[in-house]
Design a protein around this nucleic acid. Structure first.
Lengths: 336, 336
DNA sequence: TATTTTTACGGAAACGTTTTCGCAACCGTT
DNA sequence: AACGGTTGCGAAAACGTTTCCGTAAAAATA
């Protein structure tokens, strides 16, 4: 926009009225007569006046935008969350500033500072895998910045949260395997500093115990990416002969495992049943189609914005922190 | 941020210097003595002074942010583009405001206006499928807003562009099928108002002609989503017996086609070879693994930002519009 | 007619910066 | 002793709004 935009001041000068009159006319203030209003509004429309948001933001000391810190955009779950967030945020007149942490705590801290500097009205966060300390967020919260955490949250943070009941997810997946007759079930787990990692694991463990099956530490492997499946390839194949079920912490890892097993002559689900987590589009592409825990990204995104909006619209602020929990369900296909 | 932030004015008052001195000290202006600088900077650091970006933006009449209008976030190609954009933009000190058009021209126009209102420094756009007129963009361009179009572009827009050579993509895919011995090749095409739709189709047609194969209009179907595959299911199965190859405009549609064909007893690639477009993660999950044209989303995102930055850093602005073309390659797997 | 109330508008401060201009005080030269 | 240059800082305008306060004229009331 080189050709400098029309301002309220220009209109005032052209129409021989004061700046305040123009401002009020445009917002339909009762103090202005109908004819003056018409005059000004017609002029504004004719010359396509658009208020300068930069000035507005400074004036009202807020930006009408919300920030998002997300580990990585290129994962179906996260991109569907973003989609839900964008949808509702824009509808409510906020725009969205996106930062990705790339699973890096330092980047996450930079992102947070950037967003604060930009005076976003609120922030949505899903924690990075490497985040071990939470002071940065606690400081921001203490200073009054509304923050809603979603999916990857921490108990060390008192704030609004939107999660799926990951314990339940781990439990129903494992119970399903048990009911199918599996006795030796491996869990490929997320890092245990992540609450979702611990919860899913706990759900898995409790389901085993409840069924009277011993929980063996050597049946729980930290493995939550395709790459790690390759790294652990030999180990996985070694134990493959002794097991009959695997509960994997996400779909793409589950798919990688299935592929490795199939390449080595194991039949899914006849020899080994596999359950994933997420229910992304890949789940129905792999053969056998993947049985998996469904996680509603789009809805979680919307719900996060809703919670945030609730704070923004009630700056009175003594509402208790809320945690919105989505109940996971099992999408049964063929792999288990 | 309720507890109102420290300002330059506060510092000035506390230290008994003028506002201008504080401002200059913080930016290391030579007019200020070293001791005054130290005094002020230490104070600023101690009390964690952070410049108010809202005020800065108003002052410099720009927002140091770039806007993105994208048809949908939840597609692997687009989300990888976003990832590339975010990466470079943040590194260069810009932040990213994301709007999705949901393949809707009206939404696209609203998005554009929003971004202009926010005085973004530049805009990145991939056109929606339904966009038929381009005045909104041409107006913005005429007013001096730097815009870079990527992937989904139009010849009716004179601006910087980042594309893959889609004609070439269509050509190499089709030629590969021909070389494999296919004689009856169907093309599942994107909407023809999209340049990428026409280009891929033209590449397909020319490859056929060059091989002396007749181009038949009834062998070209508008079909570029999973849903459309279901709609056209019967038609596809009807012609399936007469054909031996399909060139599909994107991966997910290709995968849907493969699934439909397989369910009805056709063997891929023995009976019918299939080639997709995009090379997303799904391509190596489907069995047979999908042969497909690779499209580098992340790199295209980065390149778009580069082009935009080039404009922003040379507001002199008489650089000719550039079009950066990525050469597509064929990733050969099993489906063809 | 005199007084109060209402109507319709203008002036100016404020939001937090940057930057132009001006000006003392000091320095070194002649 | 007078002059020109430098050093170090402050005042104030500007960016485009909103809004508090004030006020003249018109209308309503007494």
């Amino acid at each position: 926009m080189k050709s400098t935009q029309l301002t309220i001041k220009d209109i005032a000068r052209s129409l021989n009225v004061s700046i305040s009159t123009v401002s009020r006319a445009l917002k339909d203030h009762p103090d202005i007569s109908q004819e003056t209003k018409d005059l000004i509004r017609n002029y504004a429309k004719k010359f396509n006046y658009r208020p300068n948001v930069l000035a507005l933001n400074l004036r009202r000391q807020r930006s009408y935008s919300i920030g998002l810190i997300i580990p990585a955009i290129v994962h179906h779950f996260f991109s569907s969350v973003i989609s839900g967030i964008e949808e509702l945020a824009h509808k409510e007149g906020y725009n969205l500033i996106i930062c990705q942490s790339n699973e890096n705590q330092y980047r996450e801290m930079i992102n947070l500072q950037t967003l604060i500097d930009h005076r976003v009205d609120g922030i949505l966060v899903s924690l990075s895998k490497t985040t071990q300390t939470y002071e940065h967020f606690n400081d921001a919260l203490a200073s009054g910045m509304p923050i809603v955490f979603f999916d990857r949250v921490s108990e060390q943070l008192e704030a609004d949260k939107v999660i799926t009941d990951d314990y339940e997810g781990g439990r129903i997946a494992t119970e399903y395997l048990i009911n199918k007759g599996c006795k030796n079930i491996v869990h490929l787990a997320a890092p245990q500093n992540l609450l979702i990692g611990r919860e899913r694991r706990n759900g898995y463990c409790d389901a085993l115990r409840k069924a009277g099956i011993e929980v063996r530490e050597d049946r729980i492997l930290k493995c939550d990416t395709r790459e790690e499946v390759q790294t652990l390839r030999h180990h996985i194949l070694n134990i493959a002969t002794e097991i009959d079920g695997i509960f994997v912490v996400n779909d793409s890892t589950a798919i990688a495992v299935i592929q490795v097993l199939q390449q080595n002559g194991f039949r899914i689900p006849e020899d080994i049943s596999v359950i994933g987590y997420g229910d992304g589009p890949n789940a129905s592409i792999i053969k056998p189609e993947l049985t998996t825990v469904v996680q509603k990204g789009y809805e979680m995104g919307r719900e996060s914005v809703k919670l945030l909006l609730q704070r923004l619209n009630n700056p009175a602020a003594d509402i208790d922190f809320q945690t919105k929990v989505f109940k996971p369900t099992l999408k049964i296909r063929q792999s288990a």
